[in-house]
Design a protein around this nucleic acid. Structure first.
Lengths: 101, 101
DNA sequence: TGCATATATCAGTATATGTTCATATTATGA
DNA sequence: TCATAATATGAACATATACTGATATATGCA
């Protein structure tokens, strides 16, 4: 469905857009995604790097996974998470740079 | 301060970035900003166009104003609001376009 | 098997958020 | 000064959100 900017936003678009930005609107999720700029991390790796509980990280990763902002690969019992949305990561990077001035 | 990694985000940056995205993470605020793509609107104008209460619009405009995402000019008793952050508006536009597929 | 490790999920709690009604403020013009 | 129109603010409420400890699940290996 095409959407020129002079019309009302349809409900589905509104939902997707708000969910995407909501994902970036939480400090914990920003820190997680910011970590993943560099390289993939295990759940415990993220927890240790950011001083967060394992369950906190796991919950937030599920949130990000549902929006397809991250993906993972398994290695034994360890899951390595990586970012999975270039557009969102670029927005995050730009906004961080923009805020550092 | 236990900031042992130069790649960690400092607290202020984290706050500004999360607030910015949080602003875009609510359907009502998205609709308001989307309206302001076209032209400036009065508070009542926004309320009528989007079928929202005057106080709802006013509250959300204050939120957006605090983040300097909108500005206003006065004409009599009427305040005309307009967008005031090109970077944020561009992100919003891109994400809307991205979600319309 | 049985056990250890890594991760996911559940349920409870505290806090944050968005909307609303009622009321206050501000500017204008008679 | 008063009345009116436009907007802002305050308080209450319901809902959403994030974090936590406890527990469940899944995998690998002896």
């Amino acid at each position: 469905m095409e959407n020129d900017n002079y019309n009302d936003l349809d409900e589905e678009t509104l939902f997707v857009v708000s969910q995407t930005f909501k994902a970036l609107g939480d400090p914990t999720r920003i820190r997680i995604l910011h970590l993943l700029f560099q390289k993939e991390y295990s759940v415990n790796g993220i927890a240790e790097a950011l001083h967060l509980r394992q369950s906190t990280v796991s919950h937030q990763l599920r949130f990000l996974k549902n929006l397809r902002l991250v993906k993972y690969r398994r290695e034994g019992t360890t899951l390595y998470y990586a970012h999975d949305d270039e557009h969102v990561m670029n927005m995050l990077k730009q906004t961080i740079d923009h805020a550092c001035h």
